[in-house]
Design a protein around this nucleic acid. Structure first.
Lengths: 354, 354
DNA sequence: CTGTTAGCGCATTCAT
DNA sequence: ATGAATGCGCTAACAG
C-alpha cells in the first residue's frame, strides 16, 4: 500500500538504516549510496512517516506559535515573521527535507484554549513553542501556565515568549522578548500633554492582561507626572481589542466627560473605532479631539488623518522569536530582552482648540 | 522517566488497551473503570504520546490550514473561523481529549512553500487540509498540486478548498468553496458605470492568480457590457495584494491617464494604498475620484470616506470549511459550492464631477 | 465490557 | 561506511 522506508531500502539495495541515515543527513554516508537512495526516494515518491520517526526519535519537528487572535494583524505579523525564520524557504523539490513545521494556533485569548493548545503541543512532542502577545494575569491561570511550560521545557521543548513579559519563574523559558508597553504608553501621553491636553480619555483593553495593564500604567505615569490625578477611573473605559469596543467605549467616555480633548486607545484597531465614534458625533479629528493608538499596524498610516501611535517592531520581534525557537540565535543574557517602542507622531493629534 | 500509557494502566489496575479506550472515548467502557483510569491519568499527569498514537492508528489529529499571508486579515479571518470549528472550545481541564489540532501554515503565496507544507502535512499524516485563498495558475504548479492533493486524498486526508476554485480534476477534493469573485467584480463596476463613470482605472492583484483573474474578468465584463472597450490594458496595473502596491499602481495609473474618475482596487488593502496616492496628489475622494475595494475587511467601514467594496463572508466560509474538514458537515452536491459576494455601496464612490 | 497479542515505521544501538 | 536487531508508545483486532 503505502511506501515505507523499507521499500526504499529494497529498491536502493541498502539497509533501512542507511536510508534513514541519508534522509536525516546526520551521519556519514558514501556519496554513491546516498545518490542511489535519493533516486529510489524520488522513484517511489516516498514521504517519511512523521509520527513513526517522531516516535523513534522521541522528538518532532513541530514548532507551535500561539496567538491570541489570528485575525488581528498584530499577531499575524509576528507569527508570519516567526514562520519565515522557522519554515525555511523550501527547496522547491517538494521533497521536504529537515525543515521544522511552524504551526500557528489561535487561542482566541481564552485561558482554556491556551492551556489546551499547550497540551496538544506537548502531546506532539513539539520542538519549540512560541507564545505571542500579552499574558492573562489571573493567578490560577498563571500558575497553570508556569507548570505546563515547565513540563514542556523538561521534555526538551524550547519555550520562547514574544511580546509577552517574562514569567515570575522564568527558568523554563529560553527567552522572553517583552515590548516596552509601559514606556511607549508613557511617551504617547507625554506627547499629548506637551500639546496642551489636560482632559484625556483612555480606552483600555481587557482587564487582567499584561499588555492592557502596562500601557495603562504608562499613561497614568505620564498623567501623574503632569500633575493630573484624581480622574483616572472616570476617564478610563475597558473593552476588548477590537474596533467595536473602541467605538462603544468612546461613546461612553464622551458621555461621561464631553470636555475631553483627546482619546488614547489601547491599540490601533481600537483607535479606529474611537475615531468613528468621534466623527459620528459630528466632531473633527484632530481639531476637536485628538486620537492616538498603539502598535502602528500597517493601516494606521492610511487612515485620515494618519494615526499618531506607538510603533512596535512586530516583524523583527517575531523573526527573532523564530530564530530563538530554532536555536539559530543565542538567547539574550538572562533570557530577557526588552524591545523598544517608538512614538510616531502623525496627523490625528494636535493642540486642543482654545 | 516519562510516564506512559502502561504506567497509567498499572496504577488504574487495568490493561493498556482499556486506558487507550477511555482516552479515545470511542469504545464502551464501564463508568467505574473509566473514572479510575481518569484519576490515574490526573495523578500521574499523563499526556498521550501523539506520534505513537498516530503511528499505531495510521492517522493523526492534525488539520492543516494553508494561507497565503497570515498577516492579512483576509486569511486571518478565514483561518480563525476554521480553527474555531476544528479546535473545539477546550474543556478547561487542560487534559485535551480527542480534539483536532488546527494548525495554520503560511505559504507566503509562493508555489514552493505551498508544496513543501503539503508534503510536511502529508508526512504528519494530517487528518485534513484546508487550502484558503486564490490558487496560482502556473500549469506546472497546478499539476504538481493536483498530484500532491491526490496523494493526500489517497492517504485518507480530507482536502477542502476555501475561497479557491475547484481543481480541474476535482476528484480528490472533498469540497471546494469558491467565492463569486467574477460576479462581485462585475457588480462593483456596474455600480460605477451606473454612477456615470467612463474612465475607470483598475489596480489588479498579482498575475497568475485565480482571484486576480476572476475579479478582473468581472470588471471587464461589466465594462464591455457598457460599451467601454479598447482601453483595458492601459487602464490596468498589476501589483501584489498590499497597500504599497496599491499606492504605486495608482500613481502609475494617474500618470497614464489623468482623466480617470474612478479606481477599482484588487482588494481593500490595495484600495487603502490607492486612496493614499490619490489624496497625496491633492485630489479628493469621492469628489474627484471614486475608489472601490474588495473583501469588506473590518477596517473598510472605518476609513474616511467609508469604502465601497464587495463583501465576502469570510468568517462563514472559513467556519464551513472547518466543519467540512472535520466531517461535521456534508459536502455540497458535486463537491462544489459558490459563495455569493455582495456589493456594499459606501461613501468612497459617487458620481463623477461634470 | 475487558485483557492479550501484534505490529505501526522508523532511529538507534551494536556489530562488522 | 553499512547491516542487523531492538524498541519507541500506542491502537486494533481478536478473544473471552
Amino acid at each position: 500500500m503505502t511506501v515505507t522506508l523499507a521499500d526504499v531500502a529494497a529498491r536502493a539495495r541498502v539497509s533501512p538504516a542507511t536510508v534513514s541515515r541519508v534522509l536525516n543527513g546526520n551521519y556519514p554516508v558514501a556519496a554513491s549510496t546516498r545518490e542511489r537512495v535519493l533516486r529510489a526516494v524520488d522513484d517511489l515518491d516516498y514521504v517519511l512517516n512523521g509520527p513513526a520517526s517522531s516516535l523513534a526519535a522521541a522528538t518532532s519537528d513541530l514548532i507551535g506559535i500561539l496567538v491570541n487572535d489570528i485575525a488581528d494583524p498584530f499577531f499575524g505579523i509576528m507569527a508570519g515573521a516567526a514562520q519565515t525564520e522557522i519554515g525555511g524557504p523550501g527547496d522547491g523539490s517538494g521533497r521536504a527535507g529537515g525543515e521544522k513545521l511552524a504551526i500557528v494556533c489561535n487561542t482566541g485569548g481564552t485561558p482554556e484554549r491556551e492551556l489546551t493548545y499547550l497540551t496538544l503541543l506537548q502531546r506532539q512532542r513539539a520542538a519549540a513553542v512560541v507564545l505571542t502577545g500579552g499574558a492573562i494575569e489571573d493567578p490560577a491561570h498563571q500558575a497553570a501556565m508556569s507548570a505546563k511550560l515547565a513540563k514542556l521545557a523538561d521534555a526538551g521543548t524550547r519555550v520562547v515568549l514574544c511580546g509577552r513579559p517574562p514569567l515570575p519563574d522564568n527558568a523554563s523559558v529560553l527567552a522572553a522578548l517583552a515590548f516596552d508597553n509601559r514606556g511607549g504608553g508613557r511617551r504617547l501621553t507625554e506627547h499629548l500633554l506637551s500639546l496642551g491636553h489636560r482632559t484625556i480619555g483612555y480606552v483600555a483593553g481587557p482587564v487582567e492582561r499584561t499588555t492592557t495593564r502596562h500601557r495603562l500604567e504608562g499613561h497614568r505615569d505620564a498623567m501623574k507626572a503632569g500633575g493630573l490625578v484624581g480622574d483616572e477611573e472616570r476617564l478610563t473605559v475597558h473593552g476588548s481589542y477590537d474596533r467595536r469596543s473602541g467605538y462603544d467605549a468612546t461613546v461612553e467616555l464622551l458621555r461621561r466627560e464631553p470636555e475631553i480633548t483627546a482619546v488614547v486607545a489601547a491599540n490601533d484597531t481600537v483607535a479606529l473605532g474611537a475615531a468613528a465614534a468621534i466623527r459620528d458625533r459630528g466632531l473633527r479629528i484632530p481639531e476637536d479631539i485628538s486620537v492616538a493608538g498603539f502598535d502602528d499596524l500597517p493601516f494606521s498610516v492610511d487612515v485620515v488623518p494618519a494615526l499618531t501611535t506607538v510603533r512596535l517592531p512586530l516583524f523583527e520581534a517575531g523573526a527573532r522569536a523564530g530564530r530563538l525557537a530554532t536555536g539559530k540565535e543565542a538567547p539574550p543574557p538572562g533570557g530577557i530582552a526588552t524591545i523598544a517602542a517608538e512614538l510616531m507622531v502623525r496627523g490625528s493629534t494636535a493642540a486642543p482648540r482654545e
